[in-house]
Simulated assay, not measured.
Amino acid sequence: MSDPIPRAGLTPRFWERKKLSALSPQEWEALCDGCGKCCMNKLEDDESGEVAFTRVACRLFDDATCRCANYDIRRQFVPECIQLTHETIANHAYWLPQTCAYKLLWEGKTLPEWHPLLSGTAETVHAAGVSMQNRTIPEFEVSEEDWEDHIIEEPL
Rank of each mutant, 00 (worst) to 15 (best):
L23S: 13
G108C: 10
W15R: 03
L43M: 12
Q133C: 11
L20K: 15
I89Q: 08
L156P: 14
T65S: 15
S2Y: 10
P97R: 01
F14R: 02
C66Y: 00
R13V: 09
I73R: 13
V142R: 09
E113M: 13
D46I: 10
E44L: 14
H126E: 05
C58W: 00
A93G: 06
D45Y: 08
H150G: 09
E144N: 10
K37R: 13
P12C: 07
C39G: 03
T11M: 13
V130D: 00
L104W: 00
R55F: 08
D149S: 14
E154R: 03
W95P: 02
F61T: 00
R67I: 01
R7F: 01
R59E: 09
A8L: 15
D46G: 05
L111V: 10
T121L: 11
F77C: 08
F77G: 15
E139H: 05
K18L: 11
K109R: 14
H86F: 12
L118G: 08
R135Q: 13
D33A: 06
W15G: 00
C81Y: 01
H92E: 04
L20N: 07
D146P: 06
S2H: 10
D149K: 15
A22I: 01
S143C: 11
W28Q: 08
D46A: 13
A93T: 12
A69C: 14
Y71M: 07
Y71A: 10
C39D: 03
V125T: 14
W15M: 02
T65Q: 14
L156V: 09
P6W: 00
A8K: 11
F140Q: 14
F77A: 08
A122G: 12
D63P: 04
A127L: 11
C32N: 04
V142F: 07
E29T: 14
I89N: 07
L10P: 03
P116M: 02
K109T: 01
L96E: 04
D46E: 14
A90F: 05
F140W: 13
E123F: 02
V78N: 03
D149H: 11
I82F: 12
V51G: 01
A64Y: 08
R17H: 15
E50R: 15
E123N: 09
Q98K: 09
S119E: 01
E50W: 05
L43S: 02
L111E: 06
Q83E: 07
M40Y: 09
L43W: 02
D149W: 09
S21L: 10
V56N: 00
D72S: 11
P97C: 13
R55V: 09
T99N: 07
S131H: 04
E148W: 06
E27M: 03
Q76D: 15
I137G: 07
L96P: 01
E80Q: 15
R67V: 06
P138D: 06
A90T: 14
D3G: 09
E123C: 04
F53I: 08
V56Y: 00
E29D: 13
R67G: 05
I151A: 05
D72F: 15
A52G: 07
I82N: 14
T121F: 01
G34C: 04
A57C: 08
C32V: 15
E107D: 14
